[in-house]
Simulated assay, not measured.
Amino acid sequence: MKNLLDDNRPIFLQIKEQLEDSIIDGSIKPGERVPSTNEFAAFYNINPATAAKGINELVAEEILLKKRGVGMFVTEKAKEILVEKRKKTFYENYMLPLISEAKKLEISADELLEMIKRGNEE
Results as ranks from 00 to 15, higher is better:
M1Q: 01
M1V: 00
M1C: 08
M1G: 08
K2H: 14
N3M: 02
L5E: 02
D6I: 08
D7E: 15
N8L: 14
R9W: 15
R9Y: 15
P10G: 00
I11A: 11
F12E: 12
F12L: 05
L13N: 11
Q14D: 00
Q14T: 05
I15M: 00
K16C: 05
Q18R: 13
E20F: 11
D25Y: 11
K29A: 05
P30Q: 07
G31N: 03
G31T: 04
E32K: 01
R33T: 00
V34F: 03
P35S: 02
T37D: 00
F40V: 09
F40G: 07
A41L: 03
A42I: 11
A52F: 05
G54T: 07
G54I: 09
N56K: 14
V59K: 00
E62K: 02
L64A: 05
K66L: 13
V70Y: 08
G71K: 01
V74Y: 02
E76P: 02
A78E: 00
A78F: 03
K79C: 07
K79A: 03
E80K: 11
I81A: 04
V83I: 14
E84Y: 14
K85H: 13
K87A: 15
T89A: 15
F90A: 12
Y91N: 08
N93G: 10
Y94H: 08
Y94I: 04
Y94D: 09
Y94T: 05
M95E: 02
L98R: 10
A102W: 03
K103V: 03
K103T: 04
K103W: 00
K104G: 01
I107S: 09
D110T: 06
D110Y: 11
E114N: 05
M115G: 07
K117A: 00
G119H: 01
